[in-house]
Amino acid sequence: MHDSSAPGAGLSRRRFMSLSAQSLALLGASAVASQLIPVTLLADEARPEALPELPAGLLRMGRDIFPHDRLGDLHYAKPLAALLDKQGALVREGLKALQGSARERHGQAFEALAENDRVALLRAIETGPFFREVRSALMFGIYDNKALFPLFGYEGSSVEKGGYVNRGFNDIDWL
């Protein structure tokens, strides 16, 4: 997993993304495997050089929408890159407007602002189509990502393991 997911010299970033997505999907198909992914490996996988290219500010925006400090950038960047592929115009124009507001109000790029200033700018656009699409893409990209389930204490598919009848459905001991 560690070696096979490292971007080879001849692989473009996009190609890597696609391979990485496949490997994660394969792991996802086997819940046993997904539970065995060590957290450190997930973090390691999110090395900056593996990130797809995103327009300035988009990754920052994504991290502000669902801020999980434990998650590497790659887990935000992948669904955002997929959204760009599908809805490029909407995302680029929305981001341009967001950057425009940032410069107008604070004289800086969105990603350079303090968190509370960024959040205020995002709150102002949260009902618009650009924000909603980004939020939705990340909701699926992060919380419906089987590889990330263990980080949230969720175990996913269980029937192939006999459910939980012998695996802790009633093991609570602190009541």
């Binding site: 598919s157 269980s158 029937v159 006999g162 459910g163 939980y164 009848v165 459905f169």
Partner: peptide, 9 residues
């Protein structure tokens, strides 16, 4: 039909 295995789905 079998008994429940507490699968959660």
């Amino acid at each position: 039909r079998p008994g429940c295995m507490q699968a959660g789905f």
